[in-house]
């Protein structure tokens, strides 16, 4: 039974069958909102899907065997781990198994950026290298508030299970922690103002500069899945509806995720890109400050 449930959550909901279209939809929504905020028409609805299919159909550049292998495996690992993280999201709390294990979920989410760092260095492009080193610095910087905020939630709820956290965390702690978590999302998704890792005016596409065709399509896929995973993580923490029937839970989960996309898109449209040092400083001071205050509140209430 657990295996079946696990497979369903990996492959159907909130896994591949849901997450892929949802990721493309979120990417489209972000681009559309960005376009409307700028007074443009914006891309058609199926554009992210078209992009993916077009990239898949392209003939890959011939590379040295090891490099080609790594450049295929790394984005694949990013896709697989992000998909795994999505499958762990506790849309249905009390599901049992590994579902909602916070430690496993966070480590799976972290595999994606790690693969991007490695992928940038493996591609042996100068710009890819700079993008990778920026990605690495930013990963270190935002993980401080990210982990502190999660730890505050865990401390408040007294549980390492996402479902437990979602149900039991005290609201003052939760609000502060969620603010810190939401602030970390733009870094992972390369959105303004924290998009230094893929600043196209400086370093083209950052770590994916040298990727092409199907390999780039895999990165795009991982990117789309990251949208679902990160907004889903916040959504499942923000509005747990434990007592409702499962369709209500699904609707709330999707609605909160989409609302989060809208908020992030408008925030991205209304800011310039901060520099690497400025971004890192922001996360180490402001972001960590918010997260630490969540932690303090959590311990005071204990």
């Amino acid at each position: 039974m657990t295996v079946v449930r696990g497979l369903i959550s990996l492959l159907v909901f909130p896994g591949a069958l849901f997450a892929l279209p949802a990721g493309w939809f979120m990417m489209w929504l972000q681009r559309k909102i960005n376009a409307r905020a700028q007074g443009r028409i914006g891309p058609p609805f199926f554009q992210p899907f078209f992009d993916f299919v077009k990239l898949l159909a392209k003939e890959p550049v011939v590379r040295p065997r090891l490099q080609g292998f790594l450049m295929t495996v790394l984005p694949l690992a990013a896709v697989a781990s992000t998909l795994g993280a999505i499958a762990l999201l506790p849309v249905f709390p009390k599901a049992g198994g590994f579902s909602g294990d916070l430690v496993l979920l966070v480590s799976l989410i972290e595999v994606g950026p790690l693969c991007a760092v490695l992928g940038g260095f493996v591609s042996r492009s100068l710009y890819g290298g700079i993008g990778a080193s920026r990605e690495a610095v930013l990963t270190l910087a935002y993980n401080v508030p990210f982990l502190i905020a999660l730890f505050a939630l865990v401390a408040s709820a007294g549980s390492f299970s996402l479902a437990g956290v979602a149900l039991a965390a005290a609201w003052p702690v939760r609000v502060l922690a969620l603010i810190a978590l939401v602030a970390c999302i733009p870094v992972k998704l390369h959105l303004n103002p924290f998009s230094a890792a893929s600043a196209e005016q400086e370093i083209y596409a950052g770590s994916t500069t040298e990727y092409d065709g199907p390999r780039l399509a895999l990165w795009e896929l991982a990117h789309a899945l990251e949208w679902v995973a990160l907004t889903g993580l916040v959504a499942s923490l923000a509005f747990p509806v434990a007592d409702a029937a499962w369709p209500v839970r699904v609707v709330v989960f999707v609605a909160v995720s989409v609302a989060l996309v809208v908020v992030l898109s408008f925030a991205a449209a209304s800011t310039a890109r901060l520099k690497l040092a400025q971004t890192a400083r922001w996360f180490l001071l402001c972001g960590s400050g918010i997260a630490l205050s969540a932690l303090v509140v959590a311990f005071v209430r204990l």
């Binding site: 376009a35 409307r36 007074g39 028409i41 914006g42 408008f266 209304s270 800011t271």
Partner: peptide
């Protein structure tokens, strides 16, 4: 002030022409 520009743009609708 940037929000004024953004809300203005959203309210006015797209200014670009479709190819």
């Amino acid at each position: 002030n940037i929000l004024n520009i953004i809300t203005g743009n959203v309210a006015r609708g797209p200014q670009t022409v479709r190819f």
